[in-house]
């Protein structure tokens, strides 16, 4: 290494980031080096800030800087419906649509038997606990249409039917099928089967 020690250290740390190779790390490090001290401090402060102030919402397990997240605290939200997502970034994607006004539940992952991620490592117990309180009338399972997403959705619906047999909760799953701008000719069998199954009347 031909860098001065502090610079080498910065390059080394940046290289640990996902998708950042040695060349990119070097470019970023030089950018930071040339930036004003204020800019550099803002970057370092914001890194420390997320680590110290962000935690999981006690209700929905989204990331928040308070005890409960903005959505759970919002009185305008429909409290009778919960959208179940795997990751906080899925929640963000859903929020960007401006179409959904209910609450969320973030599982913090999906059941992935091959990776050794089982139901106990996710926030499924907590979801059942929320539903047992009786206020919720519908849950929407918004996991990805992958094997892991399917497994997680099937597992949750099985648990709910078993643990809360009396509860009148509608369990639904987001539709799967052709993506907007997709091409029927190139769609695979699984997608087309789903698209036909989940079709709706016009």
């Amino acid at each position: 290494m031909h860098y001065a020690k502090p610079l080498a250290r910065l390059v080394g740390e940046l290289e640990k980031l996902p998708g950042v190779g040695p060349k990119s790390a070097q470019r970023l490090a030089f950018h930071i080096l040339r930036a004003s001290e204020e800019e550099a401090r803002m970057l370092s402060d914001s890194i420390i800030d997320v680590k110290t102030s962000i935690s999981m919402c006690k209700i929905c397990f989204n990331f928040t800087d308070q005890e409960t997240c903005d959505i759970c605290r919002d009185p305008k939200r429909d409290r009778s419906i919960i959208c179940v997502v795997a990751e906080p970034r899925d929640l963000v994607a859903m929020e960007k649509t401006n179409e959904y006004h209910g609450l969320y539940h973030v599982l913090q992952g999906v059941i992935s038997p091959m990776e050794g991620v089982g139901p106990d490592q996710l926030k499924i117990r907590e979801l059942v606990g929320r539903l047992a309180q009786g206020e919720v009338r519908e849950i929407i399972l918004a996991t990805n249409p992958t094997i892991e997403g399917d497994t997680t959705a099937l597992y949750i619906s099985r648990e709910l039917r078993r643990d809360l047999p009396e509860a009148e909760i509608k369990i639904s799953r987001i539709a799967h099928g052709m993506p907007v701008g997709g091409d029927l000719d190139y769609a695979d069998q699984a997608t087309l089967i789903q698209a036909m199954q989940w079709r709706r009347e016009m």
């Binding site: 038997p113 399917d150 497994t151 099937l154 597992y155 695979d188 069998q189 089967i193």
Partner: peptide, 26 residues
């Protein structure tokens, strides 16, 4: 390129069958 011959939709619709199918491929 790829052309799907079978995506096993019935396996994917059943928790028990998914679990065993995953076990088989692992």
């Amino acid at each position: 390129q790829s052309e799907t011959r079978e995506s096993f939709p019935n396996i994917r619709a059943d928790l028990n069958r998914i679990a065993y199918a995953i076990y088989i491929v692992e």
